[in-house]
Design a binder for these strands. Structure first.
Lengths: 342, 342
DNA sequence: ATGTTTTATGTAATCGATTACACGAAAGTA
DNA sequence: TACTTTCGTGTAATCGATTACATAAAACAT
């Protein structure tokens, strides 16, 4: 069918050289106006499309950026990606998606593949299982590819990051539970080698101390981010000598599991027991017993990551800019923790 | 820092030519074993990485595929993309994401951008607003880029598709409501210029007729896929002379809105009124009053789309294969429509 | 020893664009 | 008129890989 049209085809038809065609199409000032118009008209007539691969090879810029996330089918990550895509679209960048499924091996593979594919930048949320081998990250930086962490970040020189203030998020949620009258507040945490979980935990702890409440080690449960994990965790907590009367969960899914388990045991929420989650997943709002949760403004996080990338991408390679953006978390107070005004 | 290493650098170091290096790295049989080993070792030592852009330009294949969806932050589309990515990962393809936000203009732009970027294939869910201008699609096909529609499909020669049997989905849900004793079943539909909504509607209608129930035009409401739209629709329906006693909604979000509005009016579900949705969004399962919904197996849809692409991509350009895969919908019966066993 | 086949490697074109440099023609200057 | 600029275009290198073709060397046959 329609074979690919190149600038050589246009040149041949007009009896000029490809260089002239290229200049005409690129608005090079040193070209006769008549020639420019003729070339542009002919190019359109022949349905010419610039071959982006040739351009990419020549210029060394692919106009692709890579995004690595644990998985795409979670509202949080999907929303971040949406923000990235929307911010980058007007600048002509395409977004390549990679999933790690929480595997370090996969994460390293993805990093290498993206660098090999000559992406102009990489934005990612690092995967949970920590190892001290930063070689894949350093490889990216050595190739002068801007690297930006969002949400789940690691401390690596030369890497910018866009996160939320997880400490504050944890603090706000816990303080709110205290204000509602809860006195024995448990916490669901995640892999604390990740800053996000560490900081949410620290915010939780600080809120307790600031209010003169004891911090109890046995109230901290490490759960996966799943409904079942939340159920199991409640099961454990209720076997304690002094069972808690509230949970601040680092995961909305675990919070949901907790609520389901509590209901099953006829513990009424919020009068006997309050629950707050983290991430503001859509379902927390939809439930009849809507769930209090900390919003991470994923859309804004994606947009901001893209903006940080755009700032870095055109800077001279020698100067390493390292920007740390911290967004404010927002507590959405809902029925699962509101004793006062319902 | 570490400047890019090319096969020429390796050749120079070993006093051979780039051609030999290339052959050694590509397991070309006509190369001395000793040379091959030496080249491979040296390449590794120099941290050589093949430049995929150069390869892409030479071979005409970018190893990128494009995916166009209305938006990425919906569980359905994100899950389809997950399926596509997982299936294509072992084959070395990267997935480029584009969003249309339901805009035809954006859809056409995306199609052109992807073709210009030399993707090896495009998978997409067409956007709602129908127009009869297929030129952007034809442009893709003329460039011999495999095009595959998933879920929301259009009738265009040469385009394969992976959909579910929406008729059956509509039929199953409606039949179930009838079996639960509902006699006046309303339907929330979407833009019926899209086959998916048309077919769900037809399935609904057929189920009514097969059970000897009347089809009433005023029971069909065209809603957007949102909670508020569902509320408004219920408001309309309850003003009818004979208000319905059930709703089969083409959207889970509208179904949720309907439930919220019905509760507000103290109409009890499922005893007085039953509701079934479509898509099996995660929240339908999470609700205390869980919502009956038709599952579209998005993961499998994505996987299947990828497989259809893989089948087509290596075929000779001249033969146009057009494959239509139709997956079976699965009705998940939950509390919002179950009068019998709860 | 001579001719033939095989093997391993080099040469150079190619993919499709951009661009430094060269150069002839036109325009401007004295 | 002769000399310098300016203008517009052509020539050819370049980005980094692959590969058809050529060729020298080695292996083999007689």
């Amino acid at each position: 069918m329609s074979e690919k049209v190149t600038i050589y085809d246009i040149a041949e038809k007009l009896n000029i050289t490809a260089a002239t065609v290229s200049r005409a199409l690129n608005n090079n000032p040193k070209i006769k106006e008549a020639t420019r118009e003729l070339v542009i008209k002919t190019a359109a007539a022949m349905n010419y499309k610039q071959n982006k691969l040739a351009l990419a090879l020549k210029s060394g810029r692919s106009n692709n950026i890579g995004v690595i996330v644990p998985r795409i089918d979670s509202n949080f990550f999907a929303s971040v990606i949406r923000g990235i895509e929307e911010e980058l679209y007007p600048h002509g960048y395409q977004v390549i998606i990679c999933q790690t499924h929480e595997s370090i091996k996969r994460e390293n593979e993805n990093l290498h593949t993206l660098v090999d594919a000559q992406v102009d930048g990489i934005m990612m949320s690092v995967t949970g299982i920590s190892d001290e081998n930063d070689s894949a990250f350093r490889n990216v930086l050595e190739k002068n590819v801007p690297l930006i962490f969002f949400d789940r970040s690691k401390h690596i020189d030369g890497v910018s990051s866009v996160t939320i203030n997880d400490f504050k998020g944890g603090y706000l949620a816990t303080k709110h539970l205290i204000d509602e009258g809860c006195r024995n507040i448990a916490h669901f945490s995640g892999d604390q080698s990740l800053d996000i979980f560490k900081n949410r935990f620290l915010g939780y702890k600080q809120a307790l101390l600031d209010s003169g409440l004891d911090f109890k080690e046995e109230y901290v449960i490490y759960t996966k981010s799943s409904v079942d994990a939340g159920k199991d965790a409640v099961d454990k907590l209720l076997q304690l000598e002094t069972p808690p009367d509230a949970i601040f969960s680092s995961s909305d899914f675990a919070a949901l599991g907790a609520i389901q388990e509590l209901k099953e045991r006829n513990i009424s929420i919020p009068s006997e027991f309050c629950v707050a989650g983290f991430s503001n997943e859509p379902f927390t709002k939809f439930m009849e017993l809507s769930i209090t949760s900390v919003d991470q403004s994923p859309l804004e996080m994606g947009r901001m990551s893209a903006r940080v990338f755009l700032e870095q991408v055109d800077k001279t390679d020698t100067i390493k800019i390292e920007k740390k953006v911290v967004l404010a978390p927002e507590l959405h107070i809902r029925k699962s923790s509101t004793r006062t005004n319902f």
